[in-house]
Amino acid sequence: MSPIYNEFTIEIATTDFESTKNAVAGGADRIELCANLGEGGTTQSYGVIKTCRDRFDVPIYPIIRVRGGDFLYTEEEFACMLADAVNCKDLDCDGVVVGFLKANGEIDVERTARIVEAVYPMGVTFHRAFDRCRDPLEALEQIIGAGCERILTSGQELTAIQGAPLIRRLNEQAAGRIIIMPGSGVRTDNVKALAADTGCTQFHSSLREMIPSKMKFSTPAFVNDAESIRHSGIDPAKVTAFKKALV
Rank of each mutant, 00 (worst) to 15 (best):
I144H: 05
D189Q: 13
I31T: 02
V97H: 01
A193E: 15
A13V: 14
A226D: 14
Q162W: 01
M122C: 06
A146I: 03
R53S: 04
I178G: 03
I143P: 01
T20K: 02
L72Q: 13
E149H: 13
G68F: 04
E117W: 07
R55P: 04
L33S: 05
H127M: 04
S154R: 07
A25K: 11
C93D: 07
N36R: 14
V109H: 12
I64W: 07
T74I: 08
F203V: 07
M1P: 11
G185C: 08
C80T: 12
V116P: 00
K214P: 09
G99K: 09
I144Q: 03
A164C: 08
A146D: 06
R132Q: 15
G99E: 08
G26P: 07
G147Y: 09
V124M: 11
I49R: 08
F222R: 15
I161K: 07
I107G: 00
R114E: 15
V116M: 06
T240H: 12
E172C: 11
S232L: 10
G69L: 08
L140H: 05
F126P: 03
S184R: 01
I115D: 09
Q173D: 05
R187D: 12
G47S: 14
T112F: 05
T14S: 06
G185K: 02
G233W: 04
I144K: 02
G41S: 04
T15A: 11
E7R: 14
E227L: 10
R177Y: 07
Q44L: 15
V119A: 05
M81Y: 00
G147V: 09
H204P: 09
G145Q: 04
C93Y: 02
D225Y: 13
D197A: 15
P3W: 06
S232H: 11
T112A: 03
G99C: 08
R230K: 14
K21V: 06
Q44K: 09
K102T: 10
G123I: 06
I60E: 01
R187Q: 15
A129I: 04
E110W: 11
C148M: 01
I229N: 14
G185H: 09
I179S: 14
K21H: 13
G38A: 15
T42M: 06
Q142G: 14
S228E: 10
I167K: 02
D57L: 10
D108R: 05
I180C: 00
L194T: 03
K243S: 12
L166R: 10
I10D: 10
C200S: 05
Q202E: 12
R168P: 11
T20M: 02
V96K: 07
V186D: 02
A35V: 14
T153F: 00
E227W: 15
E76T: 11
F217S: 12
I12Y: 08
L158W: 12
S228H: 15
R111G: 04
R168I: 10
G99P: 00
E209R: 15
C52D: 02
G183P: 03
S213P: 10
A79F: 05
H204W: 07
E209I: 08
R55G: 05
K50D: 03
C133M: 13
E138I: 14
D108V: 06
V191E: 03
M181C: 06
G176Y: 05
